[in-house]
Design a protein around this nucleic acid. Structure first.
Lengths: 286, 286
DNA sequence: GTTCCGCATGAATCGATAG
DNA sequence: ACTATCGATTCATGCGGAA
């Protein structure tokens, strides 16, 4: 079967199929951002056939090859993943995957930490609760789009008092050029109430809705969509799951393309997005 | 030169030398915990000869082979490290090192995240500030010693003091987040007495003292020493630096062995520990 | 004794310029 | 082309002195 490659892709749709196959019919350089939380190794065994950790990179790489092709040169690929414990150890399949993705042509730009403020309870004799996940940032080129202002956070109010009176420190440091001099441009700080965030994200996991307890909460895709796209850009989630990325995209006035292989999840996300549309783009909580 | 291998090792000393050479004269299975923050690749070029990222594992593995030998079967090895940016990318030498340490015989039990609450400032067009480091846990066997109760946080006290000392930044940021904030969790804590921590550690870097500005603050080694050792156990830091691990060990009534190759750092830690002893084991800040 | 406020400084990174 | 140096950017924390 030969499917003609379209120049203009359809957006705001959920596609039922394997992302590798589906994306082969997509043109190059048509996606602004890929945000996804793929099935973790050995997890969701029923739905995805249970990829064994040892085979994870082998399973993933043909798909990421398509991601690399359909992503725009200025685009970004965010991979939310965390290795599990196998026989008392953290498995190295994620590390292996990072190394192989670089060999595939991706730039490994950054590793964000998603700190899960309310992680699952539990107790083990030789291990504490796991309250973080990796959000790996990959790019096609060094000059990718990034809109830092969109994710600024409220700043501590120390700046106000500092600005009341230009401190001697700033002047001295400026003059003496000790180390990495501070206080060069005090004027930049005037009227500033917001600060840039760091590469550690503090989001709580939300599980209020039973039917689709999200793999990641709305906050996570929203944060990355705000940071790496503008209005009307196209966001792809090749492992859509229950549709969280699509909801985040709609909330932020971006276009989405969702792909989901598993029929149950496909139907869930379909329903969720239908319901969402019926409600007229009301803000949706997870 | 042949040095006779002693059965009983000297403790509470700082040794000037390369840890690989020094440890070759140590017997097997004599150390309860190794906590260290080695020189990062390409950092401290003057002191350590500037290990290039590409050669990092090669440089490290002969040393870790000795660590593996001198560590007790129930012991733990904590490696604090973080890769830097090279040509716009995170380098993979740490990932490579983890994989190779496993091949060397170590079990990679856990990866703790040290969230640095006050990270270095700065602004770049394509990157946020780096506010976390890896604390990698390696073991010789699955049945290692772990004293979880030692790092439990009293719920009531913790909540109170946390609330009292809650920084303005935390308040402002948490208030701005509906549902995922601090207030939600407080109610849960009030009903409990003690809580186990997670694998995300929140410590600030302290550098108020100029003369011996520690690579990591006292909090980090203290936390791991409490978690993985008992009174009088032996803690080794093969890259002692300014001596922070030794100070932490003394504070907690553990024995220490510190090794430092660089003469300047060796002298600094010597002075620091001498001064500490003269003061009669008073609690020492950084 | 508290509380408040000013101050120093930190495992940084990027891009331009110079050798 | 490739490396080395330099300037610019910028936020949270704990300490110490002052109120």
């Amino acid at each position: 079967m030969t499917i003609k490659i379209k120049r203009k892709i359809d957006t705001n749709i959920v596609i039922h199929g394997d992302c590798e196959d589906v994306l082969k019919n997509y043109p190059n350089d048509c996606i602004d951002l890929i945000v996804t939380s793929p099935p973790y190794a050995d997890a969701r065994k029923n739905q995805y056939g249970g990829i064994h950790p040892n085979n994870y990179a082998k399973w993933f790489l043909p798909k990421s090859e398509q991601f690399l092709r359909v992503l725009k040169p200025t685009g970004t690929f965010i991979l939310n993943i965390k290795e599990r414990v196998l026989e008392g150890q953290r498995h190295t399949y994620v590390l292996d995957l990072i190394i192989k993705l670089r060999e595939q042509g991706w730039l490994w730009t950054e590793e964000f930490i998603w700190h899960k403020k309310n992680c699952y309870p539990g107790k083990w004799p030789n291990r504490f609760r796991d309250s973080w996940e990796r959000c790996l940032q990959f790019n096609k080129s060094k000059s990718f789009a990034m809109y830092q202002e969109a994710v600024m956070v409220p700043m501590g109010n120390w700046a106000e008092s500092r600005l009341k009176k230009l401190s001697e420190t700033d002047k001295v440091r400026d003059e003496s050029k000790v180390g990495s001099g501070f206080g060069k441009n005090i004027s930049n700080w005037l009227n500033r109430k917001m600060a840039y965030p760091t590469n550690v994200l503090h989001f709580a996991t939300e599980c209020s809705n039973k039917s689709h307890c999200a793999a990641f909460p709305l906050d996570v895709p929203e944060w990355f969509i705000k940071l790496f796209t503008k209005d009307n850009n196209v966001v792809l989630d090749p492992f859509l799951g229950s549709g969280t990325t699509a909801v985040a995209a709609i909330n932020l006035n971006r276009q989405y393309v969702g792909i989901e292989k598993n029929e149950d999840y496909y139907l869930i996300s379909q329903n969720r997005l239908d319901e969402f549309t019926r409600q007229g783009k009301l803000k949706w909580k997870t």
